[in-house]
Design a binder for these strands. Sequence first.
DNA 1: CATAAACCTTCCTATCATGGGAGGGAAAAG
DNA 2: CTTTTCCCTCCCATGATAGGAAGGTTTATG
Lengths: 163, 163
Amino acid sequence: MEQPFFNIGSAADASGVSAKMIRHYEEIGLIPKAKRADSGYRVYSGHEVHELRFIRQARALGFSTKQIAELLKLWRDQRRPSARVKQLALEHVRELDEKIAELRAMKATLEHLAKHCHGDERPDCPILDELAAPKSTHSRHHHTDTAKPRRPSVLSRKPKRTF
Amino acid sequence: MEQPFFNIGSAADASGVSAKMIRHYEEIGLIPKAKRADSGYRVYSGHEVHELRFIRQARALGFSTKQIAELLKLWRDQRRPSARVKQLALEHVRELDEKIAELRAMKATLEHLAKHCHGDERPDCPILDELAAPKSTHSRHHHTDTAKPRRPSVLSRKPKRTF
DNA sequence: CATAAACCTTCCTATCATGGGAGGGAAAAG
DNA sequence: CTTTTCCCTCCCATGATAGGAAGGTTTATG
């Protein structure tokens, strides 16, 4: 039932990682270079397929390639301290929190604007108004008009011949 | 107070869109090609800077370039129906909802796993266990072992000389 | 005025994760 | 044996953004 060897397609099916990505992961060094058959085909063991599965799961949880590299190292290390794994996981949770907060802020702003938009034939629309003249945006650091001391943009006085 | 003309740097400062991105937007056709001064420098009017600001706001709300192209078209059209704008906004809200749900599912899984991880010197760790052998993942369509009828991967029988 | 600083130009590269496809060889199925 | 399926490598594309090099322009300063 457990196939001892896989070519890249079977490994892909068995791991859920596309063949394209398997080659990619090899290229960027996330997984070691696969052994090759006489034909030049990559050959994977059940263990290697298991690693690919691990990678797929980590990706599904949103870990970046770099983080996965760390996780793989820890997974391989029988003497890893679970504290390190937990730390990585919680760091990632924090990242997720940030992204979630960002998206929710966008959503809130948009919903608020949409609520006040007639949504009919008439052209007046608070959504466009807001985009055109940002007033109460959620964007934390909108440096609107924080122009650094830039030379008076001579163009404002001699736009010359604009050909 | 309102400068009538801007070079790309001043336009960037005034709009909050980097010079790099202004050139990029021009290249992909999101904004029309800028007029040029004799020197070859791009020259922007206050109106064009206003458009850039519009783009920046839309980006801040997470709209994609394609969506922004639509929004710009509507903004320019004095006879647009606000319904179309609202529709675009609500579509985007839906997209945001999907992403938020995805991220929250990841977060929930990770928090659950982390909660059960000792986080000390010991190597045993449910986080790694889960990555290695996915059981109760939130991933909607994990085709784990949905291997399509693939030829028995002869490699399982004749791994040949793996050089 | 000459020179240096600041600015602009184009073109190329990179990021991140993923996929598509071409051209050509190898293996399994008929 | 022929056809189909699979694999190989190499190149290109996505989306939004940034970095840098090489070289021309403008402005400020001595």
